[in-house]
Nucleic acid binder design. Structure first.
Lengths: 356, 356
DNA sequence: TTGTAAGCGTTATCAC
DNA sequence: GTGATAACGCTTACAA
């Protein structure tokens, strides 16, 4: 019982009559490489263990210029998607000996810059970033470029780094297709924050699928501007007031869906009788509301492991020119879409497009 | 445009013909204290800015023995409660110049130890901990004791550190009281993971309130063993099969609630006609299921700010002997509780207690 | 008012 | 096989 406070590497070396160099070599698993005699090696290992020695990570980091820490910067870590992502990322990071620094930007460029600066100051070995928005001019790009970085869920044309996202565009297309097949012709969209990559992509998908079906996709069918439940409620109210009323809507976010459901309840309307819905963002609860919601689901776990894998590759120095990778999404059919009568094959509808 | 790579403090000092000491003093805001001439101070500040110098946080941490980093260790950071908590904690931490390291233990002692070790290795200045379970023997207690630490959401009798939790016990009591007032006499409980502080406290509250009302609270009314939706489904099935069937149930967790709703749907039963429910854990979605769920809500934001405030106090060296602080919860009445006929004042029921 | 120098605890490069 | 020693980049007595 002679374990007061664990000694430093140097202290232990002194106590054993060895040089700190030798102890360091053994403790960093370089015994072989430096041909340390197995005798001293074992003595060192034994003493280190019994004294509770832990090599100072700070000093080592300073010397090695690597901290075994990575940063995760997201717009909202309490959002179920990013929270789940963070969980997977942390788990795999830890499995590789890395710790995870997180920051929540609240989709605010100032906060993002601040958070990023804090992380870069702390010498993270790499960064996982879901950047706020399109004009990336506020970011400390020069410093950012110094460290390996990967984007997740969002792209940023101005940031020349690899990205992994779910196929948001295809998700929206799947949803619209599903609605068209069930006879819907007037299909609205409740978007999130315009300018955010996932929302813009989904809107594009919605538009493309409608256009392909020869259906209207004008601005009078596009609602919403924000990710909150409140925004969803407002958008839904506007939608319900529109004449002629759409028979179906895509809702581009789980918070939004909550607002939409509130608005419908309040208006005394029911799904799918009065309005069919496809919620883009599957959640545990989307299956237990009534009616259970038909949703688009993205592979969060897969995103998490791919993103960390990619980042670690880059930290290891591989400049693998992996293209922006998009992961497949799928539609979960439940009961929020009404089957309309009529021939779903082809329907007469006003054309849609930029040009008249 | 002479900004290749930002210089180190030392380099800049050399370039300016000053000693690194002087530059250090200015850059750490100690100019006053050391009575640096305002001339040199301004020159230094100017050069530092224009050259993009950032003082090396690692070196400073090594010297100062403080990293301006705190750790947050929770059983499940994708859980909406902990995710929200993490968000608030990170935000206030950053406001104070601290970064947040997070780890997810998945309620596994081994993972907890590993995560904690990683953080202690990285010299976090303090820790926010929602410990896994009762036998805390696996924790690196000696090392833990070295750093300021506060508990959140959970207590651990073996960890002699301050804690901040919501008043889980009172929450369950409120729920039971609410049910009793509406004429319920046979009130079941679907618990979470036995041994976890919140679940045990809530079960205790449930039991206490029933006993106070002279109602049964035996083991035949207690269901569940786990926090997942799956566990909730299983517990609900068992509950529905029990004879005589309870008229109401407390559900101690939002994941569990999802499972319970699934089970009821599947059995073709409706709330509150067939079973009244109070969900302990309010969530955005609990208001939009049908019927909207009556819930117990805890003040997450308040928990977050209090916990960080307390931790920073302790990091600053104040050994404030604040008692374990519990924050008030409240009941949100919606529509999942049926009003039963009968005199709610006092009902004949089998007694409840440990002794027969 | 500023400089010198001794750390903080490692690891890498030479020596022997 | 092992040991000096010089970094890594900063802070802070102690001088001057």
């Amino acid at each position: 019982m002679t374990d007061a406070t664990p000694p430093s590497l140097k202290a232990l070396a002194a106590a054993m009559g060895l040089s700190s160099a030798t102890v360091s070599r053994v403790l960093s698993g370089q015994a072989e490489r430096y041909r340390i005699s197995s005798g001293t090696r074992d003595r060192i290992l034994a003493n280190a263990r019994s004294s509770g020695l832990v090599v100072d990570h700070l000093a080592r980091s300073l010397r090695l210029r690597r901290t075994l820490t990575i940063g995760f910067v997201a717009p909202d870590i309490s959002d179920s998607f990013f929270a789940a992502l963070a969980r997977h990322v942390e788990r795999s990071a830890r499995r590789h000996g890395y710790s995870l620094l997180v920051a929540d930007t609240a989709d605010d460029p100032v906060a993002e810059t601040q958070a990023l600066t804090l992380m870069l100051d702390r010498h993270v070995d790499g960064l996982i970033l879901a950047p706020v928005g399109t004009p990336a001019s506020h970011l400390p790009l020069a410093r950012l470029a110094q460290r390996p970085c990967v984007l997740v869920d969002r792209l940023s044309p101005e940031l020349a780094v690899p990205a992994i996202t779910a196929d948001h565009r295809r998700g929206a297309e799947l949803a619209v297709q599903h609605l068209i097949e069930r006879g819907h012709r007037r299909i609205a969209c409740i978007q999130g924050r315009p300018g955010s990559y996932p929302s813009d992509e989904r809107v594009a998908g919605w538009r493309a699928a409608l256009r392909r079906g020869g259906l209207a996709c004008g601005a009078d069918l596009l609602f919403g501007a924000g990710d909150s439940a409140e925004a969803g409620r407002a958008a839904a109210s506007a939608l319900l007031a529109r004449e002629p009323r759409p028979t179906a809507a895509l809702v581009l976010g789980d918070r939004l869906s909550i607002g939409v459901l509130q608005a419908l309840q309040q208006a005394g309307l029911t799904i799918p009788a009065d309005l069919s819905l496809v919620a883009v963002e599957d959640q545990p609860w989307t299956g237990v509301v009534s009616p259970p919601l038909t949703t688009i689901s993205q592979p969060v776990a897969e995103l998490g492991s791919q993103v960390i894998e990619l980042l670690l590759e880059r930290i290891a120095g591989q400049r693998s020119m992996r293209l922006p990778r998009t992961l497949p999404v799928h539609l979960i059919e439940r009961a929020s879409v009404r089957e309309l009568s009529g021939d779903p094959g082809s329907g007469p509808a006003r054309a849609c497009g930029a040009e008249p």
